[in-house]
Amino acid sequence: MTKTDSPPPARLNDLVVLIAQSRDARAFELLFGHFAPRIKGYLIRLGTSGAVAEDLAQETMLAVWRKAALFDPARASASTWIFTVARNLRIDLLRHERRPDFDPNDPAFVPGQEPAADALMMRDDEDANLRIALAKLSPEQAEIVQMSFFADKPHSAIAAELGLPLGTVKSRLRLAMVRIRAALGTLP
């Protein structure tokens, strides 16, 4: 694999948009170089074997190529969107379950406020603020957040593994989310 310098976040968003607009294979190559090893690392953290993680990382990048037109940079950064693509493929291919989720085009869907016009410019600041907020969580809060994403267990099993009451796990999570949402400006 060719080593590439990591493009800045805004550039990563542009690469997905380039794929959507012009099926740009060079943009795919750059995205692959950045994200495939991270997706593989994420799956290995979840307990997936190296060989399966490699296949799934490759499938995720092919799904990115296929779904690029569905990426909306006003709603999410490339990292966030690719995270959801990898998450859903893992559920589908490794767990063999469906991924029930809402459909914004559904007649029963209750619309909320659309992202503001300046959301696109704020998105990169947000991601930076989020990384700072994650780094500032207390060790107890950070542990629960990390396990929520990487232990592949319900919160009741996380509580049992840490030897904590379920209520303690829930309250640490709640406090962590308040701090994260304050950093993102999404508290009501």
Partner: peptide, 26 residues
Amino acid sequence: SMEQMGGALLAGIAPAEMSASALSSA
């Protein structure tokens, strides 16, 4: 916001090197 956390964790994770042929076969 939670999915954005997932994106940030993915962006910050230690990369695991892909095999030499992974990119070309994709």
